[in-house]
């Protein structure tokens, strides 16, 4: 990794949208008055989404002004966390996990797929649809190897990948088809591939269900 810097080419301006402001307001409200700067990290997330997946300098300045902070404090946070992209990314930003479990399960081969389909690591594809980077553990080791794809729909985990189904996945995204996050093989969540082997007694939870939990609200219970 090398020092993180802001991109060379920057847009002239950035205006916080009303929707972003509304979202940020939720976070500001969580902190005492005068501590609005605490909402910076969620704020940067929201701004990154609005700006198309990365943080241009005017966006950093906009959030700094919105939270009444010096620019340098925002710059420090934005350069500290690698999840904040400081340069433009593709429409679908692929974050490929290269940490040990994924690597043992074949992340190295997935890298080759990304390199051939998208381009060298850190680059944006010619059509602007894709970009990819390697990241550290995303905490889905049970379904290794996996990638996270960030796009306008959100950030989805795509798990249990092979070179084949990753190619299919990328082709589907390129063609604009809908894709399903989660395991890309037949697996349900992180159950064994052959189906669940424990806790599968039918009616096991029925008794538990009847028991009213102390924090269950009355109306909810009544509705059911």
């Amino acid at each position: 990794m090398s020092a993180r810097r802001l991109a060379k080419d920057q847009p002239d301006s950035f205006v916080l949208s009303a929707a972003s402001k509304k979202e940020i307001a939720v976070w500001i409200k969580k902190y005492p008055k005068g501590r609005q700067a605490s909402a910076l990290i969620p704020g940067l997330w929201i701004v990154q989404k609005q700006a198309g997946g990365w943080l241009p300098a005017p966006a950093l300045e906009a959030i700094a002004a919105h939270l009444d902070m010096p620019y340098i404090r925002v710059y420090e946070v934005a350069t500290f966390y690698t999840m904040f992209n400081l340069a433009p990314v593709g429409e679908h930003h692929v974050q490929l996990c290269g940490t040990t479990p994924c690597w043992l399960r074949g992340a190295g081969d997935l890298k080759k797929v990304c390199e051939s389909k998208i381009g060298p690591k850190g680059s944006v594809s010619a059509d602007g649809k894709f970009s990819w980077i390697e990241v550290e553990c995303l905490g889905a080791c049970a379904n290794a190897p996996m990638i996270q794809i960030s796009n306008a729909d959100g950030d989805g985990y795509y798990e249990d990948l092979t070179t084949e189904n990753l190619e299919v996945l990328l082709d589907d995204l390129a063609a604009g088809r809908k894709v399903k996050p989660g395991p890309q093989n037949a697996r349900h969540t992180s159950e064994p591939e052959t189906g669940a082997t424990t806790l599968n007694t039918k009616g096991f939870y029925n008794k538990v269900k009847k028991k009213k939990l102390p924090n269950t609200s009355k109306t909810k219970a009544g509705a059911k």
């Binding site: 020092a3 404090r73 710059y75």
Partner: peptide, 12 residues
Amino acid sequence: VSEIGLASRGED
């Protein structure tokens, strides 16, 4: 004036 900061992290 809050104009200097420690950017990036770790070795960088």
